[in-house]
Design a protein around this nucleic acid. Structure first.
Lengths: 250, 250
DNA sequence: CGGAATGTTGAACCGTTTCAAACGGAGTGG
DNA sequence: CCACTCCGTTTGAAACGGTTCAACATTCCG
């Protein structure tokens, strides 16, 4: 399903269909969008503060993150980007980017011209609607992220992050808790969690020691999903996955 | 301009026009939306996690905040709501609310039925577009909030919060830095900043002692705007106010 | 006026940071 | 194949920022 030769727009459609009703015609129209593929090396910037791109970028493979810097040059990662996600939809509407997007691993990006997207969304309000909902879900995830950074201690914070990623990755009907690859350095984890890399190290170690996770070589395994969820205080509702079922059953 | 007898929809239109092009017809259509007014006392909830409202709420007067709780019952305020802002637009698209909205002061709320709003946005894509942009700006503010909580020390964090509020309040062309009323307790401030009320107290005190702000009786005055901005590392771009000018000049 | 909520202050405590040093693995060049 | 370097991980010890607890002062509000 994620083979290298698949049209990357398929993953976008899947992602959109997760939250919004997408008709067959919508799907076809989306899949017919013209795009061009480009590869970015790990560490390279997909978008920078102040950029005014004229194309949207769709993550076709790899991991990326969105971040900002404070005045002292310290970084805060504000969201993770996973396959199938568009990372600069908002520049369709507001000219300048307010944050950076950077590749964690090598990333394949399908870029789509704003023009083509505008044409599609004006002709198909349901697609614009779907993009709207995507944005709402992103906002909801941001709120949970704020709670995470502001009001959870290092252990719960780290556990929660790992739960979220696990949950967002396992979307083909697999139960969460499957092992997954998380190609982030401890420094990047620290920047996502508002901690130092040193403390991330100690925290992960303590989670491992307590048997809550396995973590070797950028692989995360979760021996007992419920236990980690408990430690994290993770409540999946903020990801708004359940709305899919409603839409489907409707 | 903010008199008690003004149609509260005027402030909504002003807010929307700040970021998106709103035609005269759009304005008229918006102002003709049927609404009903309701008053909420300070401390009461305008929206709760899990609610499935069938009406949108527009803050016609007062202050409110949006917050979440962690598993231990600690609160994190994730955004501030100011006059003219709609606080549950997203329930138009996703059924259940993911956070609480609570009145800080007594609030007048104009509620508008989802039905009426849906009708308006389907007939007027430019209005839906404007709502979309509102959401994008909110997302941008959330990102800055994450940076604030995650990567700024108590002084800069508090200063930044005060800068943001000052900037968001002074929108009728006044330069920022005008004195303003901020009817929040130190506990609420702490929950917004991810600090304890005790430490908020000490931090505000130190800002006052250093002459960066005046703060008496819930009134905030900023003797030297540039100084506070410097302390906060405040950069206004994330509020996306400058796009107004572009739209206007276009 | 009285009681509750909020603000203020001090002292002890603790979670996280800082600094520093050592270790391991991957990649490179000789 | 080894030596070397670079980068990320691991660990320890000390320092610091923010929390906790507790007591008291002040303001708000009925």
């Amino acid at each position: 399903m994620n083979s290298d030769h698949t049209n990357p727009l398929v993953s976008l459609v899947d992602k959109l269909a997760l939250h919004a009703p997408i008709s067959l015609e919508d799907r076809i129209a989306l899949l017919e969008l013209p795009f061009s593929l480009r590869t970015f090396e790990a560490g390279s910037f997909l978008l920078r503060v102040g950029d005014r791109p004229d194309r949207c970028g769709l993550l076709a493979s790899g991991f990326a993150h969105r971040h900002k810097f404070n005045a002292k040059g310290q970084r805060q990662i504000v969201s993770m980007l996973i396959v199938g996600e568009i990372y600069n939809l908002q520049q369709l509407h507001l000219p300048t980017a307010d944050s950076n997007v950077q590749a964690i691993t090598r990333c394949e990006i399908a870029t789509i011209s704003h023009e083509a997207l505008r044409e599609l969304t004006t002709q198909r309000p349901s697609v614009e609607h779907a993009f709207f909902i995507t944005m709402i879900v992103e906002l909801s995830m941001s709120r949970e992220w704020m709670l995470n950074v502001g009001r959870r201690d290092a252990r719960a914070r780290t556990a929660h992050f790992l739960c979220e990623i696990a949950f967002r990755l396992d979307r083909q009907g697999l139960p969460p808790g499957q092992p997954y690859k998380l190609p982030m350095t401890q420094e990047q984890l620290g920047d996502a969690l508002g901690l130092t890399s040193v403390h991330v190290n100690r925290t992960i170690r303590s989670l491992v020691d307590d048997g809550l996770i396995d973590h070797t070589k950028h692989n995360v395994a979760i021996p007992d999903w419920d236990l980690l969820v408990e430690e994290a205080g993770f409540q999946r509702e903020y990801l708004h996955m359940e709305s899919v079922c409603e839409v489907i059953s409707a």
